[in-house]
Design a protein around this nucleic acid. Sequence first.
DNA 1: CCGGCGATGGTCT
DNA 2: GACCATCGCCGGC
Length: 204
Amino acid sequence: MDETARRPLPRSFFARETLVVAEALLGCLVVRELDDGRILVARIVEVEAYCGPDDSACHAAKGRTPRTEVMFGPPGHAYVYLIYGIHHMLNFITWRDGFPCGVLIRALEPVENIGAMRTLRPVSGRALCNGPGKLTAALGVTRTLYGHDLTQGSFLWVCERDIELNAEEVARGPRVGIDYAAPVDRDAPWRFWLRDNPWVSKAR
DNA sequence: CCGGCGATGGTCT
DNA sequence: GACCATCGCCGGC
């Protein structure tokens, strides 16, 4: 990847409706700069949209709290939280200031510096980053990146896709792991993935 | 290959 | 004190 291709996507990319951003993120590259300067690159192959206070699956539906504070701010920032006491989840904040919503990154296809990823998460095969808790481990993403500005080109950012993507390559369906949500939200087809991509997470 | 279950800690009631 | 936007292990096939 050359230097121009590593430019971070601007805030205007994230400042669109969450479903639009979610689908637009497919095929894009996540770039992670470790504290020692090493650069890890991976392609986004699966995401889920969480669409504001009226979406009962969205954390912000339960109100504004210290944890969800970043969701209520401007788009283009990282929302990282811990789930089940073990796994970090990585989300990108979308749309507009004051409307809490975002996109969960659920699976990545490793592209560059895979050896470093396997040091951070020593497993073989596709278990490296085919799940939301796996990919944060493989990229060394923790709560220290909570609220991080994704448009600055440091530590964590996103680059536009470097491949062609046709509409028929994109699949969509209900989100995973939100049984507690209202039926209308449980059933909403707000999970997007690259059809047939082997790095997509196992449906649970 | 698969299904069930325990781990583990921050967050909110 | 309950709830989790999950994962890995273990046992059964």
